[in-house]
Design a protein around this nucleic acid. Sequence first.
DNA 1: ACTTGACCTTGACGCAACGGCAAGGTTCTT
DNA 2: AAGAACCTTGCCGTTGCGTCAAGGTCAAGT
Lengths: 244, 244
Amino acid sequence: MRIGEIAALVGLTTRAIRHYHHVGLLPEPERRPNGYRVYNVRDAVLLARVRRLTELGLSLDEVRDVLADDAGRELAEVLEELDADLARQEAAIRERRSRLGALLAEPPGAAGPVSPALAALLAQAPRTDSPSAAKDREYLTLMDAAGAGGQGIFGVFGTLIADPAVVELYERLDALAEAPTDDPRIAPLAADLMAVVPEELFAAIPADGVVVTGFREALLAEYTPAQAEVVGRLMDAFMERGRG
Amino acid sequence: MRIGEIAALVGLTTRAIRHYHHVGLLPEPERRPNGYRVYNVRDAVLLARVRRLTELGLSLDEVRDVLADDAGRELAEVLEELDADLARQEAAIRERRSRLGALLAEPPGAAGPVSPALAALLAQAPRTDSPSAAKDREYLTLMDAAGAGGQGIFGVFGTLIADPAVVELYERLDALAEAPTDDPRIAPLAADLMAVVPEELFAAIPADGVVVTGFREALLAEYTPAQAEVVGRLMDAFMERGRG
DNA sequence: ACTTGACCTTGACGCAACGGCAAGGTTCTT
DNA sequence: AAGAACCTTGCCGTTGCGTCAAGGTCAAGT
């Protein structure tokens, strides 16, 4: 048989068969004088075995192992490992699908894919169009993605944010947008903010890791100078108490 | 932030982020005088979104589409398509696992992964150590892999093979191993073989496709000359009746 | 001042299992 | 004599980065 015939016979492409030769999975068969490969029935049986094994999901390396020692001992070993691997993949797919389903059920225009803890928090947040509040929500989704929500800090944040007094603080921060860095409102606002933050939150935020020097600068760069003063003091307080 | 900081923040590798720049998923950020990339918090939010989307299983191209028109319209579209794709993958994995399970439950030393129809046939076959019978069983697994079992021909074959008279025919074929091509036993054996084959089998085997010129030669090459005579006559009969 | 060590830069190869194309040779059929 | 349908080798493309290689930069410790 020529390569096209055996390929049609066992249901593979000629390209695949040549590939198997190339990577050494199968030895090159003899050639006719014109260079054509010649296959016999044993080759076909072999290729059929290869096809069945690859269709089961074995890699070519695994197929090679199985073909090498056909004691049947190795086969069961590889197959069990493969089954475990498939089980893991199946579980992963199911989890992704469940998260996908949650996303699709969500109303459009939502914040995108976020953890349930953060979703609850955002739902709790009072409706305000303060730019500072919007920024904060954005940073919360960032911390969510960074995996910061692990210690349940979103729950603490939720009770904090649900407080209507916080809205007023956001507005005081907004008011500092055009202010100079020596504006007298800076110090009292920083103090009021720190007073509102519950002690657990100071403890829950890691002083290293996320709140790292570069991040601090980047975050302050998002605010006007006077606002940055306030936010910077708050962050300093976090980092000091986090260490203590 | 430098690239290492933002990478740690959003839970990606620096290599991944540079890759995103390289393929144009994200624009290159500004540089410090020393060439270092500088990231801000908005970049972090963006990268966090990218991470969540890729973790859901979107390809980078799909992520780019979603990021491009953040109308939220495209997103649902892509997500539904993705979900359908995942559903297909899940089904495929489940089918593979079920076949794997069948294989693992099988006693060791079996013929390997075969269709249930062929498995039933092989179980039915009488115990004989005739080399010709062994060859036939091998070719049957080959036809199985080639998808020839579709028309239920294995069932017909089963009733044929279960006949103890067939064993005697195999032995007569074995006996021709060393015989010359003009051995007088050739003609009667071929006739007896054809007589045993039920008419349905002639009709069920396609004259084109599997039984193609190259295959015929290859198959005959497996036998000694006298045996090939017998098998060749049988095949000729198949091909003629298949056409008629 | 000098040396680590931990960053950063670009560039290029590697992977898994082939698909697809190029550029040419062979064989059988019109 | 020209197709059509085979075959040959060889090389690029796919996906999403990991992993060197070969260097430049910068803050800290000796």
